[in-house]
């Protein structure tokens, strides 16, 4: 005898609830069970351990967190991280906006070329990219050589082994993550809105500022959060292009774990990184929605 709930049950392929109307577990969940078990065992449990370590090593209490917030070294690392992320984000968003704008408005064949050009760097290892920048930007590198030969400068510019180098490397890595959400939003903007604005008496600049730009803001905001969050966790790029002079949070964690063997302190820094990330993603989810933000 079918129950009344059967009438409302949709085909199983579209069912999304964990349990169906009669309280049975959807059998599709068994397909992801192995991954769920792996994630819990290899990720969530160790993460819990990290949390525990941060408040128990070397002795129970919040000493490690106090150190991050007050001691000059760790505080400087945190501020450097936030500052570099902010600078990188602003540059990446501005450049990414330009690239996305071009992508959204060129012919379809050109658009495909641009999409590939944006995506290809993502397939190249971050390590290779960092070393490439090091080669290009060092004192005897091609960039400084060329500038000196052309007579623009007498002394090589300090382009790497400082914050500038780190920012260059990070921007290069992060631009695709700025381009894609903005591009997704731009592509969804109805051309007729721009026509409407022009027909109502607004020139091209006014139309851009009053209609186009506000409509791209969800994409810009999503891109900002994504780029900033990615930037927070950067390790290889600052380590190589900073030449040891620019220490960001991830590297500081690595030092604490591997070199100074202060696991509790490293764990606390990891937790700070994680909380910053989650808060930012939370803000994005609340304001623009995760789905929109990630295209």
């Amino acid at each position: 005898m079918p129950s009344p709930a059967d009438k409302t049950a949709r085909p199983t392929g579209f069912r999304v609830a964990l349990r169906d109307a009669r309280g049975h577990l959807d059998p599709h969940w068994w397909l992801v069970a192995p991954i769920l078990i792996l994630v819990v065992c290899l990720y969530l449990l160790p993460l819990g351990n990290v949390l525990l370590l941060s408040v128990s090593d070397p002795k129970p209490g919040l000493d490690n967190y106090e150190r991050i917030a007050t001691a000059s070294g760790p505080l400087k690392v945190l501020l450097t991280t936030l500052r570099l992320c902010a600078i990188t984000t602003v540059i990446s968003i501005v450049l990414g906006f330009c690239v996305a704008f071009a992508m959204a408005h060129v012919r379809e064949t050109h658009q495909r070329i641009l999409v590939v050009a944006v995506l290809v760097p993502l397939w190249i290892s971050v390590l290779i990219r960092a070393f490439s920048w090091l080669v290009l930007l060092r004192d005897q590198g091609p960039v400084n050589d060329w500038l000196m030969q052309s007579g623009a400068i007498d002394q090589p510019l300090a382009l790497v082994r400082n914050e500038l180098g780190v920012v260059i490397g990070m921007v290069h890595y992060l631009i695709p993550y700025a381009v894609l959400p903005i591009f997704a939003v731009m592509r969804g903007i109805d051309q007729r809105l721009l026509f409407a604005s022009r027909s109502l008496g607004a020139g091209a600049v006014t139309t851009f500022l009053k209609v186009y730009l506000p409509l791209t803001l969800p994409g810009v905001f999503a891109a900002t959060v994504i780029v900033f969050v990615f930037g927070l966790g950067f390790y290889v790029t600052p380590a190589i292009l900073g030449g040891g002079r620019v220490v960001m949070l991830a590297e500081s964690v690595s030092v604490a774990i591997l070199q100074t063997v202060r696991w509790g302190f490293g764990a606390a820094q990891s937790v700070v990184l994680l909380v910053l990330t989650l808060v930012l993603i939370g803000i994005m989810a609340k304001t623009v929605g995760l789905k929109k933000g990630f295209g």
């Binding site: 027909s199 607004a202 209609v211």
Partner: peptide
């Protein structure tokens, strides 16, 4: 003449109201 200088009211297909 540029569109904004023509001084025509236009009602577009789908209305093209500014969603924001």
């Amino acid at each position: 003449l540029a569109p904004e200088k023509r001084d025509f009211g236009v009602v577009f297909q789908g209305y093209a109201l500014f969603p924001h």
